[in-house]
Computed example of a mutant assay.
Amino acid sequence: MDDIEAFWERAQQHADLATVRSYMGESIIAALRPPAWAFGATPEQADELVGLVLEGTKTATSSALWDYEAESEDLPDVGTLGIVVDSAGTPRALVVTTEVRTVPFDEVDEEHARAEGEGDRSLAHWRRVHEDFFTEHASHDKGFARDMPVVLERFRVLHAEPAPA
């Protein structure tokens, strides 16, 4: 059993997901492990951002809608589960999406910037850092635009584990 599978088994028990029964018997939640992914695009970002999640400072994230489209990836839905890993691929948190909305980059508000938990948690910081991120790490060829659609996601931690010693 790999680290992510073992984490998933522990997280189901801790978050009481495995006991949810479906009409047909065992819960689909227990049968299907959610995807594992890291925040950011670099190992340093992955570690910094998962640290903010574990502290409870980061409760939101944002992505370029154009990246979802370029990768033919579905947008998250409320209730989507995910396993957040650090730069070493070690699972650290099970999160559930609680809200999803798409807005133009220049309409992201102060509340969302604060919920992302980065830097001084200001909208000015969020815009500066995310303009750089969306410019440098785009999966699409449209470049950066102030009116580009951004997917804003809020999440809640269902289970977290400290870094292994």
Rank of each mutant, 00 (worst) to 15 (best):
W126I: 00
A15C: 01
P91S: 09
A160F: 09
S63M: 05
T90F: 07
V84N: 11
T42W: 06
D132N: 12
H159Q: 00
E5D: 14
L52W: 08
T97H: 05
E161F: 02
T59W: 03
S22P: 00
P164R: 15
D120Q: 04
D47G: 08
G143A: 05
S62H: 05
A60W: 04
G51D: 02
P162G: 15
A124C: 04
S87M: 04
D67Q: 01
K142E: 12
T42M: 08
Q12P: 00
D141R: 14
S27C: 06
A15E: 04
A145P: 11
V78G: 03
Y68C: 04
F39W: 14
A6N: 09
D2N: 15
W66I: 01
E116C: 05
L52H: 09
F144Y: 10
A165K: 13
F155W: 09
R33Q: 13
D67V: 04
R128H: 14
S122N: 00
T102G: 02
P35I: 04
F134H: 12
S72D: 14
L17I: 09
E161R: 11
P34Y: 04
S27A: 13
D16C: 14
P76L: 06
R128C: 07
L52N: 13
A124E: 15
D120S: 03
E73V: 00
D16Y: 15
T42K: 06
P91N: 10
A113I: 00
D77N: 12
D2Y: 04
E118I: 08
R92G: 03
A64N: 08
V20M: 09
M148K: 05
E136F: 12
D147W: 05
H140A: 01
S87P: 07
M24W: 09
A30W: 02
M148I: 05
A64P: 07
H159V: 02
E110R: 03
P35F: 12
E110S: 06
T98C: 04
W66R: 13
A70C: 11
E116S: 09
R101N: 05
G119Q: 03
D141V: 10
M1T: 13
E5N: 14
D141K: 14
D132G: 12
